[in-house]
Design a protein around this nucleic acid. Sequence first.
DNA 1: TTCCTTGCAAATCCTTTGCAAGGGT
DNA 2: ACCCTTGCAAAGGATTTGCAAGGAA
Lengths: 169, 169
Amino acid sequence: MDDILHSCYQELQKRHIRLTPQREAVLLVLYREKDEHLTSYELFEKAKKIYPELGLATVYRTLELFQEVGLLREVQFDKGLTQYELRDPQDGHHHHLVCKHCGYPQEIDGIFPEKLLELITEETGFMITDYCCQFYGYCEKCRVNSDKDGKQAKVEELTRGEVLKDART
Amino acid sequence: MDDILHSCYQELQKRHIRLTPQREAVLLVLYREKDEHLTSYELFEKAKKIYPELGLATVYRTLELFQEVGLLREVQFDKGLTQYELRDPQDGHHHHLVCKHCGYPQEIDGIFPEKLLELITEETGFMITDYCCQFYGYCEKCRVNSDKDGKQAKVEELTRGEVLKDART
DNA sequence: TTCCTTGCAAATCCTTTGCAAGGGT
DNA sequence: ACCCTTGCAAAGGATTTGCAAGGAA
């Protein structure tokens, strides 16, 4: 499954989209850090190392372009924090487990049953072409840690979460 | 299912959170327009009609407070567009079908099987306390309409979508 | 030549913060 | 008296836009 980069090149070519050095720099960084959920600015800084003349506006324009073409997807984990991830234009849904404690978005793949999607379409008439889910809770590491120690800030935040959880039970 | 407002009042009282006229105005608008997915500014304008001295900053502060308490949830359909929806602090997950054509986020409830969540927890060790999914595609209305007529802008946008869909098939 | 793409700086939009004032407890 | 809450204006951050210049087709 390493040909996602190849798929991307192919997709761009197929659509006669010029692959400028700026765009390629962005694409390469997205590929290299594809497990990292980069923000636009992080992406900009990293891509600048490949192509130093690069401007931030160009990064935004490139991200928008890539998105239209289906090469990447925006994910919003927090208000005002947009992250981007490369995706194989051929396929591929994956979802995120966002820990309320450490905030780290962990990825999960393929658990989603296609039947569920069919069911939704049947019931609503809505034709689903794409989807994306976020799950909130506590990751394994944070659950273990919070049983033992508890640094000030972390504990406070955890308490909030617990309260929320209680309210729902 | 009309007692969501009641649950909210109860929840605030339980936590000894003062219900100022500003906060109540926000709550009432959220309740009244609970199917509308208001943005902060829309909310502000509508709440202002109830309590004209209301300031925008207060709306933001109130939204943050309500969110901590579990009275509402933020939903991000588009970059830079945060919408808020009231939720029963007692329960309730629901998801959205976002039409790529008309952009209208339609809600669906309860289709999500609990087993799926358990499965995820088993496989990842991640304890899910909350989740939220967005499905993208074309709603029934838009699918029907696009078969018949096609206004300029709409057709153009639809084409984009179709292309994306093709790329995935 | 014409169209596409870019960098830079300015503009815009959404949200948060500082602060002094008002009100509840 | 003390703490919470507010409105206003200013600040902050992310993203977009205007524009003139450089390059590809």
